[in-house]
């Protein structure tokens, strides 16, 4: 195993530019799962970002919250302002693994790992976050909902690193997060949902689901229903939109039927009464 230990983001980007197959490492909570059994992966080359203090920052500006790439779930849980301005970040952080994972796992790592079950990603997407990708040639910003291109695939080039996550400060009059796992902690999401409504005129809905498609996904058809004010009287009224938005599968954690049905019920019960069209 080779590990590169950069002293700065710039140095890390230099490494990336030279070696396209580097695997960036932050909290390592995904990489080291069953590590002794995965001997073949011991032969790869890793880039340890964990000591880059410049990435361990939480910055509030007039327009946004910026999480440096090393921001952990626990960091956000401790932030005095996060709970009032971005309550869904708190709710999702509390449901990641347990404290032993929350203390090491990073939001950026969660994005980079690309799991469709990622717990941190839906709420970030529902808050319209964007990802800062930094390389030797500079930094570009990509909206999180455009970040993924397929199962564990993204627009990140091999010479780029996620350096920060930026979340615009906006007014929301509705925000909800659901994680359905097989137990209350230490669970991998079977179906998850993050929803926000911006209180601008006209109101903007964002509905994000995880564990029901190849990637964490904005649900455009459901959003359209909500924007159109279509009347909803029962969970099944979401069925067509759900069928158009997501493609859940049967796997060892749940079934496609369960995921679809529960998604409809969560949507319905969360939204009932929130808008006059849904009752």
């Amino acid at each position: 195993m080779n590990v590169l230990l950069p002293n700065s983001l710039a140095e890390a980007c230099d490494f990336c530019a030279k070696q396209p197959d580097l695997i960036p490492l932050a909290g390592a909570t995904d990489l080291l799962v069953h590590w002794p059994l995965r001997q073949a992966e011991h032969d790869k080359t890793y880039l340890d970002l964990s000591k880059l203090q410049e990435l361990r920052t939480i910055t509030w500006s007039a327009n946004s919250l910026t999480l440096g790439a090393l921001t952990t779930y626990w960091d956000v849980l401790q932030d005095p302002r996060a709970k009032s301005d971005f309550p869904l970040l708190i709710e999702s952080a509390r449901q990641v693994g347990a404290i032993q994972i929350q203390s090491r796992g990073t939001w950026a790592g969660n994005i980079a790992n690309g799991s469709p079950a990622a717990d941190g990603v839906p709420v970030l997407m529902a808050y319209d976050a964007s990802v800062a990708l930094t390389s030797k040639s500079g930094t570009r910003s990509v909206p999180l909902h455009e970040y993924y291109t397929g199962y564990r695939k993204s627009v990140r080039r091999s010479d780029e690193l996620i350096s920060a996550i930026s979340i615009p400060l906006r007014r929301y009059d509705f925000a909800v997060f659901h994680k359905v796992g097989a137990r209350r902690a230490q669970a991998i999401t079977k179906i998850g949902l993050a929803m926000t409504r911006e209180s601008a005129k006209p109101a903007t809905w964002r509905v994000v689901a995880n564990s029901v498609a190849a990637t964490v996904k904005r649900c455009a058809a459901v959003e359209n229903l909500l924007h159109a004010g279509a009347p909803i009287r029962k969970p099944e009224d979401f069925a067509a939109a759900i069928a158009s938005d997501v493609t859940p599968i049967d796997d060892i954690r749940s079934t496609a039927d369960y995921r679809r049905t529960v998604m409809a019920r969560l949507l319905y019960h969360s939204l009932k009464g929130v808008s006059p069209a849904i009752s």
Binding site: V3, L5, L25, A28, T29, L31, L32, V33, H34, W35, P36, L37, D48, S50, K51, W74, G97, A98, I99, Q100, I101, S103, R104, Q186
Partner: peptide
């Protein structure tokens, strides 16, 4: 478990609980 679920390997690192089965030792430098 070797997968960060059971917590039997819990230690604290910089005053926060962590599963030591999920920490590469080189990351605790300093």
């Amino acid at each position: 478990c070797g997968e960060g679920e059971c917590g039997a390997c819990t230690v604290t690192i910089d005053d926060l609980p962590a599963n030591s089965c999920l920490v590469p030792t080189f990351q605790v430098r300093g």
